[in-house]
Design a protein around this nucleic acid. Structure first.
Length: 484
DNA sequence: AAATTTTTGAA
DNA sequence: TCAAAAATT
């Protein structure tokens, strides 16, 4: 379609949220197709930022850097981005009024807060006679697109996945952008001079945050490079992904979270590779959609067990044990290594997320919501749907979660997935002198061995805070007590 | 996306 | 007698 000549709108704001990229961005592509002029916008949302209790939040740095890159790319085309700092419910309609936009285009966000915010923005815009148009971009399939025969949402992953794959293969268009464009039509983007003076101050200082170090490079071009770097490793994903000391995972979770890469690009990459590893990775991407669908369809999971009968459980874990877990001093080396690495970087390997979550809920008997909140506060790739889904999986309260009797033995997990102990040695250096299986469970070592390893238990490294075999029985009893 | 105990079945 | 399969939690 020729641009501009038959555009439906004169001037449209495109509002970036968790889609911080120019390429393969459905809402942005539609905005440039349907409007003579497009004004790019990002809002640093004070409703979210004011709730962060750490001025060194890594996510703010990631977003800030990614917006900077967007701005550089837009400026190279002669355009720019408007950046606001405030409450979107006021800021977006206000900007629309200021530039006299006909509409605000954006990509849908399925989190309860975002959905409520967008409904409010839509109402405010409508009062002024402006449209709010949103698009599917964050997922391949939304909640109503994959349903059982009886029209119900799936509550078990495998049949959901089967239906997802079938639907995808029926129409390969799902993997593509609706408009064939992979990048926006730059001719439609508002010229830089038009956008001058519209932004708030948005350097980190003005936002009230301090830049942090990150373990990965923010932005769209870095995301593309990371995917490219993963392609040759994808075939080995199935075998390597469970070992925290190997580079076996894609490392794309942060980019998928902030949309510096599109889910379609990821799915296309998996579909174009016929290895077992690619299928396994695709399966993980489908888990992501499964959890997004569940959150959209059952928002009560934010604060309640997906399985209502397990809401009756009163988790008896103590605050002391929770603190020991948070700080990586439980006396379980693999758990402590994972938590210390996490605290230092804001990232945790998926295998370790399962081990630490299982340990908090089934060994320390602490309510999964506390663990979920701790991860929510520190994960650079934090996503409500995936984090909640993962925690409810580990706690056995979720849709298709681990059965309550399937409790990880943290020592066996450690031996299996960190066989040479290199992960533990790196992140719990005081244990590095222990050899073989003793590293995974040092507490049976005699004093000679401890001195030899340079680590006296109870002094240099804590005694275990609980006994796994005792706690596991208590965990099973908690579930049995409330079973129907 | 488990761990552990019990039973089975072939040597 | 032991490893694999099945049952149990």
């Amino acid at each position: 379609m020729p641009h501009g000549t038959d555009a439906a709108f004169e001037r449209v704001i495109f509002w970036f949220r968790r889609d911080l990229r120019l390429s393969d961005n459905r809402g942005l592509a539609e905005a440039t197709r349907q409007s003579r002029q497009v004004i790019p916008l990002f809002v640093f949302d004070t409703n979210i930022l004011d709730d962060l209790d750490n001025t060194q939040d890594r996510r703010v740095t990631f977003i800030h850097e990614s917006i900077r890159e967007l701005q550089r790319m837009l400026q190279e085309t002669g355009s720019d981005i408007v950046v606001l700092h405030g409450d979107p419910e006021d800021a977006v309609p206000h900007l629309a009024d200021r530039v006299n936009a006909d509409a605000v285009f954006t990509n849908r966000d399925y989190e309860p807060y975002a959905a409520a915010r967008d409904a409010q923005v839509q109402r405010a815009l409508a009062d002024d006679g402006r449209a709010f148009v949103d698009f599917k971009d964050q997922v391949i399939f939304e909640k109503d697109e994959i349903l059982t025969q009886s029209g119900e949402p799936y509550k078990v992953f495998s049949p959901y996945k089967r239906a997802w794959l079938q639907r995808f293969e029926e129409n390969t268009e799902y993997g593509r952008s609706p408009a064939a464009e992979e990048v926006p039509d730059y001719a439609q983007l508002a010229p830089r001079r038009t956008l001058r003076g519209l932004s708030d101050a948005w350097d980190m200082d003005a936002l009230g945050f301090v830049p942090t170090d990150l373990w990965l490079v923010p932005g769209e071009s870095a995301a593309r490079e990371r995917l490219a770097g993963f392609l040759p490793r994808m075939a080995e994903y199935k075998t390597d992904r469970d070992f925290p000391s190997r580079e076996g995972t894609s490392g794309l979770s942060v980019h998928l979270r902030f949309g510096t890469i599109s889910i379609r690009a990821a799915v296309r990459a998996a579909m174009e590779d016929d290895s077992k590893g690619a299928q396994t990775w695709l399966s993980e991407l489908i888990w992501r959609e499964f959890y997004q669908m569940l959150l959209d369809r059952f928002p009560r999971v934010v604060s309640h067990s997906f399985k209502p009968e397990y809401d009756a459980i009163r988790w008896p874990g103590t605050d002391d044990h929770f603190q020991a877990w948070c700080e990586g001093r439980t006396g379980y080396p693999i758990v402590d290594a994972a938590m210390r690495h996490f605290n230092a970087t804001g990232w945790m390997h998926n295998r370790l997320r399962m081990i630490t979550a299982m340990f908090l809920t089934k060994d320390l008997l602490v309510d999964w919501r506390l663990g979920e909140a701790y991860f929510a506060g520190h994960l650079l790739d934090y996503d409500l749907a995936s984090n909640n889904g993962g925690w409810q999986w580990s706690a056995s309260t979720g849709a298709d979660g681990a059965p309550y009797f399937r409790i990880f033995n943290p020592i066996l997990q450690s031996k299996r997935f960190d066989p040479d102990g290199s992960y533990i040695r790196e992140h719990v250096p005081e244990l590095a002198g222990f050899e073989g299986d003793t590293l995974h469970w040092p507490h049976d070592a005699d004093m000679f061995t401890q001195r030899d390893a340079g680590c006296v238990l109870g002094e240099d490294y804590p005694h275990p805070v609980v006994d796994h075999f005792e706690q596991k029985e208590k965990a099973i009893a908690l579930f049995k007590a409330v079973e129907k």
